[in-house]
Computed example of a mutant assay.
Amino acid sequence: MPYFEGSDGAQLYYKDWGSGPPVVFSHGWPLSSDAWDVELKLLADNGFRAIAHDRRGHGRSEDTWTGNDMDTYAADLAALVDGLGLSDVVVVGHSTGGGEAVRYAARHGAGRVRKVVTVGAIPPVMVRSDTNPEGTPLSVFDEIRANVLADRSQYWKELALPFYGFNREGAVLSQGLVDHFWLQGMHAGLAPAYDCVRAFSETDLTDDLKALDVPILIAHGDDDQIVPIHDAAAKAIELVRYGTLRVYPGASHGIHGEYQKQLGRDLLEFIRS
């Protein structure tokens, strides 16, 4: 399996499919690059080089005790892009990966990144504070951490339901998708999964959004129960200079079904434009 050295030498797994202009994907918590497989194949089939890595402590990457924070995640992404000698890169991030992509582009991407795409992403900041009174209370994230510690196997099964909107009236449950979420979650190390909660909830990416000088597509489902659109995309679009907001009616946090198909079409159109 292909590995690269992260910013501190950690051994991190990546996929590299197809050839052509590079598009680099960052996944959400607690998943792995496998969450992007459909999009990776779509891009590779359409003449792009599609690349995705497993974040440190997730998937097949090294289970690190340190570095489970947004600055290191972005530095790891820089190590991947630099190590592969990529230029004119499009970076795509879902959820936590959206924060990673934005911080990477703002702090490491000058001269390398030509476009950014976020999907159901965490920027600008999730947790409630004096400067973000509409945010999610810290107690919610404390509960997530407690569930990860107590019985993360059961928690992944339960979390998959709101993640994909399967708890909504009339939703058709895909047990296979729930099982795949659980499987990816179980490949995340305990410490990295626990520490990542702080990374995705408390990292303030406001200045990173303001610093972007390339086009950004901000995609978000309006029934996202994990990263509510009013706390994220609706605020992020006001902070960027060259942003396009794409709202998907009824779409969940997890990318699947008709949402996935439309997102794929929009992704191709934005990258090609």
Rank of each mutant, 00 (worst) to 15 (best):
Y164S: 04
K235P: 05
R168F: 12
A110F: 08
V125C: 09
W156S: 01
G135K: 04
P124C: 04
F181S: 01
G185L: 02
L217E: 01
M186T: 10
Q225S: 13
M126S: 14
G170Y: 08
P192F: 09
K115V: 08
V116H: 03
I229W: 01
S201P: 02
Y164G: 03
Y164A: 04
R128I: 09
L159I: 10
L161R: 12
V113H: 00
Y194D: 04
L212W: 01
A233M: 02
P192S: 10
L161S: 08
L161W: 09
L217F: 07
A211D: 05
I237E: 01
T206M: 08
R128M: 11
I229A: 06
D195F: 13
A171F: 03
V178M: 00
M186G: 09
A232D: 04
D223V: 12
M186K: 10
D213L: 11
T131F: 09
D231V: 15
P162K: 01
W182L: 15
V214G: 02
L138C: 11
R241A: 12
T136P: 04
T136M: 15
T206A: 07
G170R: 07
K157I: 08
A211K: 09
H220K: 06
V240R: 00
D151W: 07
V148W: 06
V116W: 03
A191Y: 13
L173M: 09
D231F: 14
A150W: 12
D195L: 13
I218V: 14
K115C: 08
H230F: 15
C196K: 03
D195M: 12
A199Q: 05
I218C: 07
V240I: 04
G189M: 05
H187K: 15
L138D: 12
V240D: 00
G111A: 11
H230N: 15
M126I: 14
A236E: 04
N167C: 07
V113G: 00
R145A: 10
D231I: 14
L209H: 00
A233T: 02
E202M: 12
K210R: 15
K115S: 05
M126P: 07
T118Q: 02
S201F: 01
S153H: 13
H220T: 08
D222Q: 05
R198A: 14
L212Y: 04
D179S: 07
G176F: 09
H220L: 07
H180K: 13
T206G: 06
G189D: 05
G111W: 09
